[in-house]
Design a protein around this nucleic acid. Structure first.
Lengths: 205, 205
DNA sequence: CGCATTGTTGATCTATGTCAAGGACCGTGG
DNA sequence: CCACGGTCCTTGACATAGATCAACAATGCG
């Protein structure tokens, strides 16, 4: 019924064609839900982090893929088993609904990012949001270090921009004293105030 | 407990500040869920059409507003009443979950539109999608007429572009023979094939 | 018949996508 | 130990879609 699965980065978890007939609970690592355009452009629609789940789209028509963004450990439920469990576990139903609400909220926030903000502001926004998302180590001086677990390309495809722009903007932020690029995957956030500029209450600076 | 409400276009249904403590079921007209950026930019995160519902965001942190996009008739439930109903009506819980899934799917599709497609393709996409969304009258010759119930500005804010661009693109489509602008609110869709170009399976041409 | 709202068109400017090249880093195999 | 190839990131030069500003046309309403 429920089995534990380990996958390397970029492994396909579930597919447009085969349809994803499983329910997955992320135990460690990150999954990305994405979709490709014919033009070859990829848009990441959301990331699932440890503790979150990705279920078979109930009634959804969209054709999305789910892949491992980093090496992951998953707990996999066969769909039928899951339906049965769901049937006689009110708590599970509640949890599932909760998950659904969380996904909705995350997706709305992303839509908002994409629609209302320019690349520059979008990048600043996720830097701040990622603090309770990715490994984040606050330092004594009030700044803190963020571990970007994802390659530039994933960040770009999440923000609907390009690798190059992400890179350029990060270095621009560094020049402006907003952040320090310790190494490509370690960013020290310095000036929260200015990072949060123009982002509304989206993120508490 | 449940009351019927009628509102004119652009009426505020529920607010960021006051929080929306009601549950609404749309009976006629369209609601828009939106959010403003400090820069004054508005992004429409989704439209609710007759038969759909908008509930109080359960656990959501986002600050969204809900307004009438057209004159609407709503069925309003007080939150407490609704919670009670929800408690002893399994069917209602099921329906609510369904609604949540629908919202999620719609929001993902919008995210995808915004992230993966350019303005041109986005506009073509909603023209096609709006066929089962807005009043749509197929004609004998295979074409059909779409009633754009919404002002240009709403379309623009939904597609994360501007009034001007929407207008220009519509006229460009007309020049290319894809559509005919009967009047600003009535569009005849002519060449479905070419309208669907590059939109993947998003819409069946 | 003004006046307000909504839509259209033009001119301009800029952010950012695209293409191309090069650099840093890492593991593998000789 | 070094050479090699691969991946990931960075930087530069250039082109352009589309935002912005501004004016004007069309429509409907009191």
């Amino acid at each position: 019924m429920a089995q534990s699965v380990s996958l390397p980065a970029n492994a396909r978890v579930c597919d447009a064609e085969r349809g994803c007939s499983h329910f997955h609970l992320v135990q460690s690592g990150y999954l990305r839900m994405q979709s490709h355009s014919m033009a070859g452009r990829r848009q990441i629609l959301g990331m699932a982090r440890p503790g979150e789940s990705i279920g078979p789209p109930r009634g959804g028509i969209g054709v999305y893929e789910v892949e491992a963004a980093t090496p992951v450990r998953l707990c996999r439920f066969d769909r039928q088993t899951f339906e049965l469990l769901l049937f006689d576990e009110p708590e599970l139903r509640r949890a599932l609904f909760q998950q659904s609400q969380i996904w909705l909220e995350k997706t709305r926030r992303l839509t908002w990012l994409l629609g209302a903000l320019g690349s520059n502001a979008r990048l600043r926004a996720i830097l701040l949001l990622a603090r309770d998302w990715l490994p984040w180590r606050p330092l004594e001086d009030g700044t803190g270090v963020l571990s970007l677990e994802l390659p530039r390309q994933d960040i770009a495809d999440y923000l609907a921009t390009t690798q190059e722009t992400v890179s350029r903007l990060l270095h621009q932020f560094q020049d402006e004293g907003l952040i320090e690029i310790i190494n490509p995957r370690k960013i020290r956030l310095i000036d929260f105030e200015r990072l949060a500029e123009g982002l509304d209450g989206l993120v508490s600076a």
